[in-house]
Amino acid sequence: MAILVVAEHTNAALAAATLNTVAAAQKIGGDVHVLVAGQGVGAVAEAAAKIAGVSKVLVADNAAYANLLPENVAPLIAELGKGYSHVLAPATTNGKNYLPRVAALLDVDQISEIIAVESADTFKRPIYAGNAIATVQSSAAVKVITVRSTGFDAVAAEGGSAAIEAVATVSDAGKSAFVGEELAKSDRPELTAAKIVVSGGRGMGNGDNFKHLYALADKLGAAVGASRAAVDAGFVPNDMQVGQTGKIVAPQLYIAVGISGAIQHLAGMKDSKVIVAINKDEEAPIFQVADYGLVADLFEAVPELEKLV
């Protein structure tokens, strides 16, 4: 029994979510192989070969796989996947994009965003915005699964020495083309991997006021997130959104500033180790999940906090 993990990468570097997915694969048990698909991904393949516990790296390096267009990579993964008991991918926007297509090509159901492995065929996953946890069992010949990275501790990025093998198959559906992308630039840690996250909501008032949070975040080495209200109001770009429809984070410390704590926001952060809420409304639902709550005006509390930490 072997497990295929599809690597998440930026073409130049392997993404951390891959390490959490390999951790989930190890919990299932069996040989772990990693597939790196893309164009010009030699360095990523080498990084994947060094991951502790990986026994083989498959590399599909072709122009057809650049930008991981699902029409092209899904047939590749489905073809390779037939030889495995499990096919896993991180529940990133890429993984969520191509993996259900792979499952349908294999004619099996997919299990989305698992947070725990009970056994080789039984998994736990959150439903209803994290308000219930379902235990599901799969009888599929190939189990196709996306992995929520906050559910598993990353394996070591170094220590392995897997063989690298090129995959010759090229599938180019010719139905879609990459036009361009606009990536948000940030020097702060990546939101989903940060140890500390400082998030702002509607209470920030405007985009300019987020500078208070950036200053605090820089002092703490934290990433900055936001609620949907802050994104919809145009304060910050949408890739900063934490919640059911944004990113799922589980840092050591989550500081929610001017966020009421709607169900959809809590879905994205309630597994954080310590939650701090700063809000002037003492009835705000966020105080029900906060370990430490401070009822105060954020425009006074945040600069003071920045000074004291």
Binding site: N67, L69, T93, K175, A184, D239
Partner: peptide
């Protein structure tokens, strides 16, 4: 499309 790092545009037949 809304992707993890920002926005991506694709052309589909």
């Amino acid at each position: 499309r809304e992707i993890d790092g920002g926005l991506q545009t694709v052309a589909l037949n």
